[in-house]
Structures are given as structure tokens and as C-alpha cells.
Design a protein around this nucleic acid. Structure first.
Lengths: 141, 141
DNA sequence: TTAATTGCAAATATTTTGCATCGGC
DNA sequence: GCCGATGCAAAATATTTGCAATTAA
């Protein structure tokens, strides 16, 4: 499978490359942690591009549908956050002091999934693991 | 530390034992999986006890504050769910077909937390792990 | 008695939707 | 030109809050 530009990827999925859709993807591609629809909305406005919040939501919905973006909810927060789907799965370390989110790459639960599969007779298709703690700066307070 | 009744526990925390508060706790104690504020509201109404949804929210808030209840969000859903805090930590297996939630007990990530602590210099205080899959019944469809 | 609790209605926050218009291909 | 994308306003959903009345201790 050859490497695709985002435009090609959109075309292949039957989605138009509009300036808003591209702006949303540009922002998500650059982030290494998930952000909310509202944050995306503000960042696009800061780029001096007019956009409506419902356009952000509608785009995120179709991008999630097409698996280009992943939607998740981090505990404690009521709203959803979104990240570009790099096809690698990640876990997050969330600082309870300043709410900073750090992505961590290594995943320790392949074996655990298999164990649960045989114990419960479920077919496991994924998981979500978030760690909570205090970053070096917040720890001092 | 001797075993306490829920009433004693409430008293010790400076909370009154009202019928609504007791009803909320009774429901949560009996569940082995987290439920939403609205589900609690409906279950109390089914017991022929009049209650307002905001009373449910306000009670859950204070019970979370006092650590008698845990608030969490399961991905995909926009709303929060609550469970009685048994001081044991649990993980959940969520069926993507019928949305059933199963609690699983064994936790595999003590060592992982230590590893991340030394890698990131964060102080880890907790984590959340949910598994997603299909239960035996939903798998057949 | 009195401070905590509750009901009710209204406010807030987040996300979704209907419909007319616009714009990519 | 067609059909998907967008703006706008309004609806839907989830949660919070102000205030007066009620109730547990």
C-alpha cells in the first residue's frame, strides 16, 4: 500500500477536499494528543478562516465514520476529543494538575486481551487505557 | 478499620441520610457495573419514590467528592456513568453490539505504571482501562 | 433550631439537525 | 449541473445553578 496524501485519501473515500475539511485535518495531523471540537474551531478561526462550529462537528463525524479520525472521551471531562488516526494505537498520560495530555506509545495489554477473551468468550476488538498522574511541574505544588 | 454501614459512612463524612441519598446508594451498591444519572433517576421512580433529576446529579456530585462513588466516562458515550466505590479497582468489558458492560477484576498494569513513571518523571496515581468487543450473543449476528 | 437537602425552573454546555445556499469536481 | 458541504438558527441532550421551601439531626 503506497503512501497517500490526505487529499488522495479523501478522494478515495468519496469525500471532497474543502478548505474547512483540510484545515481540520491539518490541525489534527500536527497534534500528538487529542483535542476537542471547540479547540479545533478556535484554531481555525485563529488562522483567519471563517467556520461554523457545526461544520466542525459534521466533519469530525464523517472523518470518524471513514476512520481517518478517532473519537474518544477522557474520564472526568464531559466532552469528546478527537485525534488523527495514524493507525498506531496510543495511550494517554493525563496530568491531573494542569490537564496536559501526553501520548505514550508502548502498549502492554495484548496478552491481557487474549486472557480475557478465553475467560469471557467475548471477541475483543480494542481497548482504551489512560493513565492519570501529576507531571513534574505540578508535582511540586 | 471496622466495617461500616452506609449510614455510618455518611454520618462520618458529614452527610445526612436522606431517603433520596439512600436510594441512590442502594441502587449503586447493587450494580456490578456503572450506570448513568438518568438510569438512577428512573430506577428510583420505579420504586415509587418521587425525585428530581437535579437531586440525583447533586447527590452524585457530593458522593464523588467524598469518594463514595466513582464517576467515569466510557468511550463512545457522551454521558458520565457512576459506580459505588468498593475501593477495589475494576476494568470494564463493553460489548459494542448491545452496550452491555461487564466488570473484570484482574488488573495487568502495575508494572506498566512503574515503567511509565520512570520514563516520564510523572507521579502516576491511577488509570482507566476499558476493553471493547462483542459478547457471545452479539458475535453471531 | 439550623444547616443541609430538595424541587422547580431556568441557565449552561455540548452536540445534532433542518433547510436554504454554496462550492468542488 | 449535481450532490456533497456549509451557515445559521433552532432543537436535542446532558449537566449545573439560583432560590425558596422542606427536612434530618
Amino acid at each position: 500500500m503506497k503512501k497517500m496524501t490526505i487529499q488522495e485519501d479523501l478522494k478515495e473515500k468519496g469525500l471532497k477536499s474543502t478548505k474547512h475539511r483540510m484545515a481540520i485535518l491539518d490541525i489534527l495531523v500536527k497534534k500528538d494528543h487529542p483535542i476537542s471540537a471547540e479547540q479545533i474551531f478556535f484554531e481555525i478561526q485563529e488562522m483567519d478562516v471563517a467556520i461554523n462550529l457545526s461544520t466542525v462537528y459534521r466533519n469530525l463525524e464523517v472523518l470518524v465514520e471513514k476512520s481517518m479520525v478517532t473519537k474518544l472521551t477522557l474520564s472526568g471531562d464531559n466532552r469528546s476529543v478527537y485525534e488523527y488516526n495514524r493507525m498506531v494505537h496510543r495511550h494517554y498520560l493525563i496530568c491531573l494538575g494542569c490537564k496536559k495530555i501526553l501520548a505514550i506509545e508502548h502498549c502492554p495489554i495484548k496478552k491481557y486481551e487474549q486472557q480475557i477473551e478465553s475467560e469471557t468468550d467475548y471477541k475483543i476488538v480494542g481497548h482504551k487505557l489512560d493513565l492519570y498522574g501529576y507531571c513534574p511541574e505540578c508535582r511540586e505544588k
